[in-house]
Nucleic acid binder design. Structure first.
Lengths: 331, 331
DNA sequence: AGGCTGAATGAAATCGTTTACATAAGACGA
DNA sequence: TCGTCTTATGTAAACGATTTCATTCAGCCT
């Protein structure tokens, strides 16, 4: 049988209260008692039962991350940042994939007896389900939910991407958007529109390609682009995710189109891989691990300090120039 | 205040025992009582306190996955498979990154009061730390630990890759290995050696490149390869991970080498992206999500059925032919 | 000396469930 | 009709910690 706190108490010749204190609030017991207790712990091989502590303290010691797609490397790096902060602070990291988990179960998850707090990475969740515990949103956000958001300025980032293409001399510029309704996709699209309109250009329907952030949808966009009139189609394409940019570039290259000779391509996120393909992809870097760390710290503050201010935290992005963008081809 | 089970009992006019039974073992109470209880639950807004249940039942309801690197998409997909099985079975998925977490904390994690079971994805962990709860190993494995392993036949898979290159006519074949001491890296290297030796060839030192599965190390291997005598260096290279293959191919392409015209490249894993770059990469597909699912099922069996047999589970791999391999260039 | 303070400790209540055991009421066969 | 089962329920004891409150004792001030 596993030793309990009372076994330690007996061996040390003190009460369970003292053992408890010696272990979790050492400054409350005398030095000699503390030594006695630690010795008894060693001797008995005692290990704290977390369920018991959690019950008594009415907490779980865990933080739940709600991820739209665990298989996506993008989120993996955010999780990594979250774990980095949570671990040392004494919290477990629980993860749930919101696409896999059915809505009822999800409701059960976002509950004080499951987790002390929530980090939401999926902007498509129902706000009502998330009101029962402290929440921080990272990257994406649920518009109806009032809670701290740790994110980048997607609109400004998109403008930066477009500005880059225009600075190179591109005038026919296309955009492959993310999924409809997704907050990131909409913000990036809006930024694209704005940047173009400021220069008297406009994003016409033929230059706006559907997409869903996935590789496959980037490829589909390429297929559409390839069918368009070479004299009219965009010479520069901004894609709302690096994955799509990869899919796009791979497909046009296979059809004999040169990047950046015939078309410039710029992505979004700066996932690791795109620096290593040929040509390396120009992109907007998003500090993923940092977003995770910040979100976790923010949540810890809510958990420990009570109610924190609900301001958004905007992280800077960076335009990473590589070899997939260049001046447009001569007509 | 959150309603407790006794509040429900009062409202329903029954005892707490009956409420508990009505909720978790409905077949034990009469139909009318059950209805009464459910009504009372609805009315009071009662939600089960998991900490209390866990304490009483002496379980945690969680399974911990130990991942060597959360930021790696490879593991993300395995996690996805694990989550898919665990959720419906009523278990939480906890994850810990073994590189981030310090060893002491890790020891605390692999503990009955933290998690009911463990899925180990890191072969480099100390076996002693993992003996306190049921364990299943997936992909990688801890040699000293006797526990079920869900994995592929890495050696046979490597032989398959080499056989493919030889069938195309390659005679000078290179291998970029994974990190030293890693069980996967060693198995793939062994398979490579075997396959070559069976055909009277041998893997000489100049054709064995160091690596650590990462993109960057693939690129380094490419730099070495590029410096070697074009008449002597390998015409076909098998890399122990797709990431390395990407790094390798990207770098040689940038130096004007054609793939597969000048050198054939074959990777390992079949991560999604490599099907979309140019040229699409030939590789060995590993069923990642399936590995995760299987490992989770296996663990559930241990948790519920008691001691299960400790046999390894070998999943099939598949040689995926794409465009990065072809006949060797004429000398 | 008496009273007050603060530190160190212990006794016992508490957290919210589940479940072993006891009880009561019908059903059934002999 | 009487035991004997079965079914449905209730009572109360766990589960293993933390924490409130009370107690003891030494030190210090007046």
């Amino acid at each position: 049988m596993r030793p309990r706190i009372s076994d330690v108490a007996r061996v040390a010749g003190v009460s369970t209260a003292t053992v408890s204190r010696a272990l979790s609030q050492p400054e409350l017991v005398s030095e000699e008692t503390r030594a006695l207790v630690l010795q008894a712990v060693e001797k008995t091989g005692y290990r704290l039962n977390l369920a018991a502590r959690n019950l008594r303290q009415n907490r779980t010691g865990g933080v739940l991350a709600l991820v739209p797609n665990l298989a996506n490397p993008f989120f993996a790096q955010i999780l990594s940042g979250i774990a980095e902060v949570l671990g040392p602070a004494g919290y477990n990291l629980l993860v749930a994939d919101t696409r896999i988990t059915d809505p009822d179960t999800l409701l059960e998850y976002a509950e004080p007896s499951r987790a002390d707090g929530l980090i939401v990475l999926d902007g498509g969740l129902p706000a009502e389900a998330l009101r029962r515990v402290p929440v921080v949103m990272a990257c994406e956000w649920v518009p109806a939910l009032q809670a701290p958001r740790v994110k980048i300025d997607n609109r400004a980032a998109a403008r930066q991407a477009i500005a880059h293409l225009m600075a190179l001399g591109h005038r026919r510029i296309g955009h492959v958007r993310g999924p409809r309704g997704n907050v990131l996709a909409e913000a990036r699209l809006a930024g694209t529109r704005e940047a173009l309109e400021e220069q008297g250009l406009c994003l016409d329907a033929a230059s706006l390609y559907p997409g869903d952030f996935s590789l496959a949808s980037g490829r589909e966009a390429a297929l559409i682009w390839l069918r368009q009139d070479p004299g009219l189609r965009p010479t520069g394409v901004f894609l709302a995710s690096d994955e799509m940019a990869c899919g796009f570039m791979g497909e046009v290259q296979r059809q004999g189109i040169a990047v950046p000779g015939d078309v410039s391509v710029i992505g979004f996120d700066d996932i690791e891989l795109i620096a290593h393909i040929s040509p390396p992809l120009t992109t907007i870097r998003q500090p993923r691990a940092e977003i995770g760390r910040l979100a976790a710290r923010r949540l810890l503050r809510s958990l420990e300090g009570g109610e924190a201010a609900c301001e958004d935290e905007l992280l800077p992005v960076e335009l990473v120039l590589r070899a997939s963008t260049a001046v447009p081809p001569r007509a």
